Amino acid sequence: MPKPRVKSASQPSTLQRDAEALNAAVSDLVRIYQFRDRDKICCYDISVTQCYALEALVEQGPCRSQALAEALMLDKSTTTRVVDALVRKGYVERRTDPVDARALSLEVTVSGRKLYDQINAELIQQQIDLLHDLEPEVRAGATEILRRLAKAAQARFMSGVSVGSCATACGTDANEGKSCG
């Protein structure tokens, strides 16, 4: 019976090389989009995080602050500061929760919806400009890959998986409530 081949440390596996290439590509893409988002969204006098909150409220409808914090993957105090700014600017309202009158529900205002629609339309136009030279099946494939990667990454994040020294400093159990920031 032949012995199994052991890859030497000097010869990375195909999976290793693919992971390194994906990491570099995603890092480049995220960096470009972060700057694009900051430059495009911040000209509307809201931060990128405030825009994400507005987007979450538009997409999921009115919700409590804790649900928004979970959707944004932020702690409750950070979410409160983000929402406070959106309320001051007139883009979000706090209303009595229809299910529990003791609680407050967050809801996008008409002007908040208008702002979201305007920002979203401009961002989608940028995507159209990027995609117009690609074949329809390439566009669909790229979108599917990004969705699957995002879903897998979110599942790992939600399960408490962390990386590097943060994994030890923060703990890897999602129920410990530790954070690196």
Rank of each mutant, 00 (worst) to 15 (best):
K3Y: 06
P4A: 10
R5P: 02
V6A: 10
K7A: 13
S10G: 03
S10P: 00
Q11L: 09
T14E: 12
D18I: 08
D18L: 14
D18N: 12
V26C: 09
S27N: 14
S27C: 10
L29W: 06
R31Y: 12
I32G: 01
I32C: 06
Y33Q: 07
F35S: 15
R36G: 04
D37W: 09
R38Q: 08
R38E: 12
C42A: 13
D45K: 14
D45C: 05
I46E: 08
S47V: 07
V48I: 14
T49H: 11
Q50N: 00
Y52G: 07
Y52H: 13
L54H: 06
E55H: 05
A56P: 04
L57S: 02
V58F: 03
Q60H: 15
G61S: 05
P62M: 15
C63W: 02
R64W: 02
S65F: 01
L68P: 05
L68H: 07
L68K: 10
A69F: 03
A71E: 09
L72V: 11
M73Y: 09
M73G: 09
S77A: 15
T79F: 03
T80A: 14
V82T: 15
V82M: 04
V82P: 01
A85G: 08
L86F: 05
V87F: 01
R88N: 14
K89T: 03
T96M: 09
D100T: 06
A101S: 10
A103I: 02
A103C: 10
L104P: 00
L106G: 02
L106T: 05
V108N: 00
T109Q: 02
T109H: 02
S111T: 07
S111M: 06
G112R: 01
G112E: 05
D117L: 07
I119P: 00
N120D: 11
A121C: 00
E122N: 10
E122Y: 06
L123I: 02
L123N: 05
Q126A: 15
Q127N: 12
I128M: 05
L130K: 11
L130Y: 04
L131Q: 11
H132K: 15
H132Q: 12
D133Q: 11
E135M: 01
V138Y: 03
G141S: 07
T143P: 00
E144N: 12
I145G: 00
I145V: 10
L146K: 07
L146Q: 11
L149S: 09
K151A: 15
K151M: 06
A152F: 06
Q154F: 06
Q154W: 07
Q154M: 13
A155L: 10
F157A: 15
F157D: 10
F157M: 13
M158Q: 14
M158L: 15
S159N: 06
S162D: 03
V163H: 05
V163C: 09
G164H: 04
S165Y: 03
C166F: 03
A167C: 00
A169R: 13
A169P: 00
T172V: 13
D173Y: 00
A174S: 14
N175V: 04
G177I: 08
G177K: 04
K178L: 13
C180P: 01
C180G: 07
